[in-house]
Each structure stands twice: as C-alpha cells, then as structure tokens.
Design a protein around this nucleic acid. Structure first.
Lengths: 327, 327
DNA sequence: ATGGGCTATGTTAGCGTCAACATGGATGCT
DNA sequence: AGCATCCATGTTGACGCTAACATAGCCCAT
C-alpha cells in the first residue's frame, strides 16, 4: 500500500479511501491511484483490514451433510450469492455426532461475521446454545424465532399442492412417506399433507417414515404398498425413487396402479422411471435470500428477517387417475 | 490475550507460546495459562495471527458446480479433512463462464494458503494461468504436472474393471456412454474402456457422448440402443440412470436384453431399477488425500505429490450374461 | 474582507499476534 | 570456583490497514 501511495504521490490513507470507494476523493486523484494499484498489482490485505475493522467479510455455512442433493444445491446458491456481495464463504460440516456447538465454536474461531445454518441442524440450534453471542445467524428451514433470521421453503404449501393434485385425480386418500423425526422440513411437509387431506375430506392414514435416503424410501414404501395404497406422497425425490422401485418389485405399475409424487425436483427426477411428478423447491432463491438477509443484518443492522419461498407442482408421468376398481 | 496474561501472571508472549504449543514452557506455567484462557473464554484472533505470520490457516476449494453428486461428496470430504487439520475451508465456485482466473483472483484476495481444484476446471487450469504465483495448488483429477500436486481416481482402471466384467459375461463388445469433452475423468474412463476392449479382442465401437446429466444419458443411450447394443458402460451413474430409462422406453429389459454399468456408486444407485452395477469411487479418500497433500506442501514444503486412488466394481442387478441369440 | 463551512488530503496511533532478541537464574563441566 | 550452556520468560517492534482527528485551501454569505 505504501508503494502504491508513493507511486501515486498520495498518502496511504488516500489509497485506502480509493479502495473503499469513499466519496471524499478527487476523481483525478482516484484515477491516479487506481493506475498505480493495477501497475503494482496491489491487492488489499484482508487480514490486516479484518484486524483493524473487526470484520472479516466472511460468512460461514453450517451444514450437517452434503450427501443430500438439496443441501449441495443450497450451498452452491449461497456461495454464489456471497461472492457477489464480496464475502468469502467458509463451510463447516457437523461431525457424525452432529455437534452444533462445536461447529459454532469453529466458526467463532475463524471470526466470521455471520453464519447460515442449513436445515437438518435446525432442531439442535433451537436449543439454548444459539451460537456464540454476537454471531449473526440466518437459519434455513426453521420455525420463526427472533434470535435469528429465518428463510424457509413453503414446505407445507408444497405438500398441499401434492395432495390436492392426487385427490383431484380421484384417489381416495394419499399415503405419506415422511422424512425423519427432528427435521423441520419433514414436519412441515407432513403437516401440509395432513391438512390437505382433512380439507379434502379424506382419511388420514398413518405415515411411514424414512430418513431421506432412497434405501429408506424403498423400505418404507414397501410397507405402504403392502397396505394397498394407490397414491404415495414422498417427502423427497430420493425416497420417491425408492418407492418407485418398491412398486416395481411388488408388481404395481406406476402410475396405473399407484401414483407417486416427490419433493425437491432434483435434476435426476425427470429421468426416473416413470419421470417423477414432484414439488419444485427453488434452492437458488432460498440460498440468495438467506445470504441477503444475513448480510443486510451485518452491514445495516437490519432486524432478523422471516421469509418464505414458494414451491410449485411439476407434473410428469408418475401420477394418473386412481384405478377404477378399488384394489 | 493481555487479560489472560495478567490473570496467569505471565507475559503475552508466554500465552502465545502456550497457544502455539511451544516446548519452551514450564508445565506448571502452561496449566496456569490454560486455566486463565478457559476462564476468560479466550480465543486467539485469527486475523491478527494471519497479519503477523502471513499465513491464514485457510484453504480454498475451486469447484465448477456442485450439481454433480461426486463434487458434493468431495467437498464434504475436503471440508472434514481440513477441519481435522485445523484449517478453514472457503469455497469458490466458477461462474457460468467457468472463469478460473477470476476464481484464483478471489482466492488470492482472501489470502488462502493454498487451494484444491476439483476436476471439471482442470482443463482450464492447465492453461498458462496456473493461479497466482505463490499459491499452492492441488488439482483433483488432472494429468500429472510438476507445477502442482495431483490426486486422482484411477478412472482408467475402473473403466477396465467395468469392461472386463461385461466381457466376461459373454458380451461381444461394450458400448460407451462417455462424459463430456474437456473432462479429464471422462477422457480417462474412455481410455480405460478402449484399452480393455482391445485387450479383450473386442471391437471398439464409436462412443456416444453426454454431459454427466441423466437427461444427456437418456438421449445418448437411445442412440446406442437403436444400434443394437447389449452392454453399455456409462461414464457416471446419473447418465446410467438415463440409459436405464432409455432401455425401458425402447422395450429392452435390463439386464436380460442389455446390461448397464455406471461409475461413481452414488447413494441412489442401489435403488435404480434394477439396482445398478457400478464402479465405486472413494471420494472420501480422494478428498482427504488432496487435503493432506496440500497441507503437507504448505507446512513442510513437501514437493508436489501425485497419488492415485483405486476403485472397485460393485456388482448389482443391472448386468447379466449376454442374450443367447444375437440381437 | 472576514469568518464559517466545506472539500481533499495528510498524520497518528493502534487493532492482536508473534519473531527476534534480551535477561536472569539454574545447571554442568573443567 | 569460574565460565559456558541452557531454560523459562520478558520486552520490543512491526505486520497492513483504517478511524479519528488535523490541516490547508477554497467558496460563499454577510
């Protein structure tokens, strides 16, 4: 910086002002400084700035696992949005033990200005230990809470879309292949399913529960199909994939004998057999809103936001009118 | 730090020595300092340390996209390995334009100590602009190059495994559903396929090319099946998924009429219909080796490493002996 | 023309840490 | 006993940056 200053014939402070786009700089001086910077390949030193200002221009992302396709997509959206805003993103995964406190500890050590917490960790975040004091937080898919910002997908609304679609096709009721206990998204999707069933005057059968993996979807769907279900709403696409295989193995044709709806609209869903009707979640919007809420909070002290991102039904070939004769 | 020093009745320098595990500290003093640190909730200030030492204890990860399941898994492995070594991980994605230079620019600005570059960006990295001078690099899935460390999966070996498996089942030859041009992994898998075919005395038919997505796999496989293939080796599982659908739509039974092998062993592959025979890639090993190579280079000045991680064949139900009468 | 306010720029100091050197006491060797 | 070593610890200064204050020149209203 001193070199730049000398070359441009100004003080270091003026260089700093140029770098930080301060309005208090003569245009002529500014361009002289800019020229010097690019000639010398000057790059501001982030650590020094962080030391001085107390802010690192870095946000953290806490995620339980990246095995789920949804989390990966969110991560990408978050990374892009953060980069656009000039923030670095550091990723912290929960260990196998899912120790949120340890994750926050690591974030605090790295001195991030704030953090985004992805869904699965949510239940644990709600416990007493809401991170380190002073660390701004935005939690994705969590019940509303003033202690941090919340950005969520409209899971319940999406579930309602799925159920209404199925009921309108003449199915007597819809069975639910639910996500794991402790997941906010799973609970909300289940709630939406339940409400839509009640609203439609249909019976509410017991749920079968999986853990988001296709293997668990296969196992749980087998039970449902055994019980004679004609319409299955799976809490995510991967479990729907398992359900499709379960149907095939028990000799049910999809969609003629049984209809299946997923949730997420993962890239592969269009190539499941048959192509899956599903609820599309807008991961990009979710990620960029989360980043926007966090950074607005950091930079402008904006109060904790609460936002809901809508979903939409994508009809493909895994759903059809109910079989005419009851099975 | 000053507070800790005072409380423990020592100087700041001694606290520093304790934090950095210097041997030059009396055990009794050390424990006194440690007590003071935990009582005061002291946490060393990373930015200050970075300013002083010139090292940030942070590594970068450059990735083109996280849409591919493999990349996500790698990212997770890298994140965990970095955390274990006490390094933070910051993720940089390539924009839609795939601008590697810009990505390196951002990394340099953040002052990472080194970076790992994931596969797809490889071809571009090899161009003149090998990052910023002084930035240590480990590239995953790249041809050997002294300018940076390389860690790769044995793609060609895996492909050979797939082809040998198929030939041993009596298939006259194996068609290849290749990955995109410009991908090192795709090129290597194709090479392995070609070599194994030649070694087995089988004809080498022209390849059909996709872009890793299931949709592209569907399209490309349709062509292959039209041509009467009985054995297809897809360059990844997602394209294999597309191939399975293509087979179904053209009335071929898998595995009775046509056998399909994938690559990666993605979590869902076991629930494809039929469960997919595939080549398992050890993403965790790949990620942790890459981190180890990078950090060894940073800390110990170890020379650029070159490592290959083996694969293995996972036989499921998508492969069977060739149909007895030629199709 | 004089003071007040405004603009462009400079000066000073310190953010938390650790490398380098300094110190003082204990130990060991001749 | 005398001197070289070694060990545990302390002191000093600087890493690169920017907040806060300081200064000098200018314009404008009175």
């Amino acid at each position: 910086m001193a070199d730049v200053a000398e070359r441009a014939g100004v003080s270091g402070q003026t260089v700093s002002r140029v770098v930080n786009a301060s309005p208090r700089v003569d245009p002529e001086t500014r361009s002289r400084v800019e020229a010097a910077m690019s000639e010398l390949g000057y790059r501001p030193h982030r650590a020094a700035r962080a030391l001085r200002t107390g802010r690192t221009q870095t946000i953290g992302l806490v995620v339980s696992t990246l095995a789920s396709v949804g989390n990966s997509r969110m991560l990408q959206a978050v990374a892009d949005a953060a980069a656009t805003r000039g923030y670095a993103l550091t990723v912290v995964t929960l260990g196998a033990d899912g120790d949120v406190a340890a994750a926050f500890e690591r974030l605090a050590e790295q001195g991030v200005d704030g953090a985004i917490v992805l869904n699965e960790a949510t239940a644990r975040v709600r416990g007493a230990d809401v991170g380190v004091p002073g660390l701004r937080l935005v939690v994705v898919d969590s019940p509303r809470d003033d202690r941090f910002g919340v950005v969520e997908t409209d899971h319940a609304g999406g579930a309602r879309l799925a159920v209404e679609h199925l009921l309108s096709l003449g199915h007597a009721t819809v069975h639910h292949l639910a996500g794991p206990d402790g997941s906010f998204a799973a609970a909300e999707r289940e709630r939406g399913w339940r409400e839509a069933l009640s609203a439609g005057g249909a019976a509410v059968p017991p749920v079968a529960r999986g853990d988001w993996t296709s293997a668990s979807g296969f196992a749980a769907a087998s039970v449902l199909l055994e019980a004679g279900s004609t319409a299955v709403f799976a809490a995510n696409d991967q479990m729907a994939l398992g359900a499709l295989r379960a149907a095939a193995e028990t000799g049910r044709a999809v969609p003629d004998d049984v209809s299946v709806v997923g949730f997420d609209d993962v890239a592969d869903a269009a190539d499941y057999r048959p192509p899956l009707t599903t609820i599309r979640q807008d991961f990009d919007a979710l990620g960029s809103r989360a980043v926007a809420a966090l950074i607005d909070g950091i930079e402008a002290g904006a109060p904790a936001a609460f936002e809901t991102v809508p979903t939409r039904l994508v009809v493909r070939e895994s759903t059809a009118p109910a079989p005419s004769t009851g099975r």
